[in-house]
């Protein structure tokens, strides 16, 4: 499979809309060709071998197909939504436990003071802002973030691999997150 195109967030959103509204198989195939090799990479970095990583990627994409109607572009971009599905697939596959999540219909859910903006363009801006922030971070902090996200590494394992004390790993991750938050906060103004 050759996959050279890098669709923008709007193309992804359009495929997703056709999938959710019309169960469009071509749109699903397009999403599959883009995301499945990336989910496979994500699973391999978390420790899966080639064969199981591909199975997990296929199962994650089946979940994308089945849950398409629950995708809400006001809540998250397509990539973010697919990431949460792949993440939960990984938790199922490796940890065999649950990831408790809040119930969006909970009467106790305290709403935000200002309604979240549901501007689809904002998702692109968020992704851009994240890339900008990452480009500004020291390479070591980016590497640590990727290890935490991609390689399913506990902070103690990151410490071991980087040869840094645990406290230093934690404080650098916190620095990186603070930086991301500042830049994202500025973008949303």
């Amino acid at each position: 499979m050759t996959q050279t195109a890098n669709p923008d967030a709007q193309s992804l959103a359009e495929w997703m809309r056709r999938l959710a509204e019309d169960q469009d198989r071509d749109a699903f195939a397009a999403l599959f060709e883009y995301f499945a090799p990336r989910i496979k990479a994500y699973m391999m970095r978390s420790g899966s071998d080639d064969v199981s990583a591909e199975e997990f990627a296929q199962e994650a994409m089946l979940m994308v197909w089945r849950r398409a109607a629950s995708f809400d572009p006001a809540q998250a971009s397509v990539a973010t939504w697919v990431f949460t599905i792949a993440r939960n697939k990984r938790i199922d596959a490796f940890r065999r436990n649950n990831r408790p999540e809040l119930d969006p219909d909970d009467p106790l859910l305290l709403p935000a003071a200002e309604p979240m903006q549901d501007d689809k363009l904002e998702e692109d801006q968020t992704a851009d802002a994240i890339r900008t922030a990452m480009a500004d971070l020291p390479a070591e902090q980016v590497r640590m973030l990727k290890m935490a996200f991609y390689e399913d590494k506990a902070h103690s394992e990151i410490a071991e691999e980087t040869g840094l004390p645990l406290g230093t790993v934690k404080s650098r991750l916190r620095l990186a997150m603070g930086k991301l938050r500042t830049i994202l906060g500025e973008t949303e103004l």
Partner: peptide
């Protein structure tokens, strides 16, 4: 969203 961005940026592995 950071997770989503990292997923887009990861080097894909052929199926």
């Amino acid at each position: 969203a950071l997770g989503g961005t990292l997923l887009r940026d990861v080097a894909p592995v052929s199926l």
